[in-house]
């Protein structure tokens, strides 16, 4: 029973981890039809923000929950103005340009901070006992914060005026613009919002994974495949895809080890895309957010 509970917790953590790293990418893809291949590097930048801030004596919680999203959100706004703005409607070109951006960011961060970081941050919450098994309290915290982030995104998109305007702009930019909405600003803010969520993920994961300039590569493949197999609906897509893939990954990892778990995750995603070329939400939960 204890084993089962510990395993279940591990799987739920895997699912929420997948959802956390994909959410920012899903917002940008779902709202703007832009695939940001520099997403992994945005997560990496979030991690570096936390490292730099804490080494200057900033409180860790403040750095993770406020500074990381703020800084990366700002980076996102700048990137949108300089790069993405010129490429709307050209999906493949945005993909390629953001891939270039990803290489550029890896190189730039390596130049500034060096290929390895010496500073590590330890998770601020200790272990929790479940029967005979120890579990990381910080992982429990991450599960909760992922839920909070999903709820937060839902609230912003559904309940605020900004969210309404943003969804209107994505559906009918011409009509929104005729009604006096500055679509260009909405695009900029949406991209910044998605980036901020990526920064939050990076900040939160920094104590667990450690931070090196190339850490983004670990995330991007998983996030990309989760978002694509989830389809266009931001929250329903991310949640359904990361649940499915996270469970597959967790079970296979438990049975055979982490590498095969990863492979099983990727293969499952390929099968999903083959069966449902528009992703899960292209077939189910169509009207959902």
């Amino acid at each position: 029973m204890d084993l089962f509970l510990a395993l279940a917790l591990q799987i739920v953590y895997g699912v929420s981890n997948l959802a956390l790293i994909s959410l920012g990418l899903a917002i940008i893809f779902g709202m703007m039809r832009v695939i940001n291949l520099a997403h992994g590097e945005f997560i990496m930048l979030g991690g570096y923000t936390v490292i730099v801030a804490t080494s200057h004596g900033v409180n860790l919680w403040f750095a993770m929950l406020v500074l990381a999203p703020l800084v990366v959100g700002l980076v996102g706004v700048i990137v949108e103005r300089v790069l993405i703005r010129h490429l709307y409607g050209r999906m493949i070109d945005t993909l390629l340009a953001t891939w270039g951006l990803s290489l550029f960011l890896i190189g730039a961060v390596t130049t500034i901070f060096g290929p390895q970081t010496t500073t590590t941050i330890s998770p601020p919450i200790g272990a929790v006992q479940i029967g005979g098994y120890g579990s990381s309290g910080y992982e429990l915290f991450l599960i909760l914060i992922t839920l909070a982030a999903v709820a937060g995104v839902y609230a912003v998109l559904r309940l605020t005026k900004l969210g309404l305007v943003a969804r209107a702009t994505m559906q009918r930019p011409d009509m929104a613009s005729a009604l006096g909405v500055s679509t260009s600003q909405v695009y900029m803010l949406t991209f910044g919002f998605g980036s901020a969520v990526a920064g939050l993920a990076g900040g939160l994961l920094a104590p667990i994974t450690g931070v090196v300039p190339t850490v983004g590569a670990i995330y991007i493949a998983k996030a990309f495949i989760t978002v694509i197999s989830g389809g266009a609906a931001i929250l329903a897509g991310t949640l359904s895809a990361s649940s499915l893939l996270g469970v597959v990954n967790g079970v296979i990892s438990y049975a055979t080890g982490p590498t095969l778990g990863e492979v099983a995750l990727l293969l499952t995603a390929i099968v999903i895309i083959r069966i449902m070329p528009q992703g899960i939400t292209g077939r189910f939960f169509r009207k959902s957010l």
Partner: peptide, 20 residues
């Protein structure tokens, strides 16, 4: 002097934007 990734990244961006 310059990191390889910085140059490759810039090359890709410049070509997509200016010389598609």
């Amino acid at each position: 002097l310059v990191n390889l990734n910085v140059v490759l990244g810039l090359v890709l961006i410049v070509f997509v934007l200016l010389l598609p």
